[in-house]
């Protein structure tokens, strides 16, 4: 198993190299010029000489392979370069923002688990009851509502009307509540449906009937047999959600002025800030691979069938 883990970790390296080259190529062939876009974003019209001088300063007039090679050799030495826009080292900005993204992701997931799992179970257990219909309606509505709209409504309610919570900023716990809640509402509604579906699938299997025929109470079979089995498939989906959230809930970060990596990436994309975009892509590749690895490893622990197969890995 150790070999398996090492192999999975090592595979990250070629993935990242290919991705970084691919991303660099895409940004390079995009017709827009980083210097012009940055100036336009500020409403500034600069003359061609100014733009060219800035391009020269940033090394943007060099051929593609020279630029990519320079960037890659820097990365191999631990230097991800400086942001074109701010001139600040990319990793400095990245590590400053990462805790905010981690906090937002963790909070949203925590809320989602605490709400979605029990409600999903209830919805499945009381299938086709008024409670099930209500939860399905709520989850349908929640999934259908765009996050930016939900976020604005929450701001209006808790910030403007009740004046209970700050509506923007990357500050303390109070600043975290509304963006986390906005993310969690969508995720919760999504996972109520997923947990319900997964539970129902397991409940239709024969072992439930078998267990009950043996005289084990239905509630006990559901909690001890059906629930653990149904959560296995949900864990995979959670893994993907964690990856997406760690990549930054961009819209949420933007409207709440939450200074996370998602907003940083979007700002960078809008002005073609290549070093920041590259760092973000590498980060995304890393978290997706690592989260998938963790999910796979969790199966080894949770699912005996895979554990047994794992001996042959």
């Amino acid at each position: 198993m150790v070999k398996y883990i090492i192999r999975r970790v090592l595979i990250v390296i070629p993935i990242m190299l290919i991705l970084s080259f691919f991303t660099f190529s895409l940004t390079f062939i995009a017709s827009s010029d980083p210097v012009t876009l940055q100036l336009e974003s500020m409403g500034v019209k600069a003359d061609a000489e100014t733009i060219n001088a800035k391009r020269e300063e940033l090394g943007l007039n060099d051929p593609f392979l020279v630029q990519y090679g320079r960037w890659l050799s820097g990365v191999l030495q631990g230097d991800f370069g400086n942001s074109y826009k701010s001139g600040v080292p990319v990793m400095q900005e990245f590590t400053k923002r990462l805790p905010n993204t981690l906090a937002l992701t963790a909070s949203a997931l925590l809320l989602t688990i605490l709400i979605a799992v029990p409600l999903g179970i209830l919805s499945a257990v009381f299938q086709d009851s008024p409670l099930d219909y209500l939860l399905r309606l709520i989850s349908f509505l929640g999934v259908s509502m765009p996050s930016f709209w939900v976020g604005t409504l929450l701001m209006l309610l808790f910030g403007v009307k009740l004046k209970m919570l700050p509506i923007q900023g990357s500050g303390d716990f109070k600043h975290l509540i509304l963006p986390a809640l906005t993310l969690a509402i969508w995720m919760t509604c999504l996972y109520i449906r997923r947990v319900r579906g997964s539970m129902l699938e397991e409940m239709n299997k024969d072992y439930l009937v078998g267990g009950m025929a043996k005289g084990i109470p239905r509630r006990r079979v559901i909690l001890r047999q059906v629930l653990p089995n149904s959560l296995l498939s949900v864990i995979t989906m959670f893994g993907m959600s964690i990856g997406a959230l760690l990549g930054g809930a961009t819209v949420i970060e933007t409207i709440f002025e939450w200074k996370g990596v998602g907003k940083m990436a979007v700002d960078a994309i809008s002005i073609r800030d290549y070093p920041v975009i590259q760092a973000y892509v590498l980060w995304m590749a890393l978290i997706y691979v690592m989260v998938n690895l963790l999910v796979d490893l969790s199966y080894l622990i949770l699912d005996p069938r895979i554990r047994l197969e794992g001996k042959n890995i």
Binding site: L102, A103, G171, D172, F173
Partner: peptide
């Protein structure tokens, strides 16, 4: 870990707050 990260994030960005 979720709770810890939440606390960590809050603390680390406390200066900003």
């Amino acid at each position: 870990s979720s709770a810890a990260l939440t606390g960590c994030g809050g603390a680390s960005s406390g200066g900003a707050a």
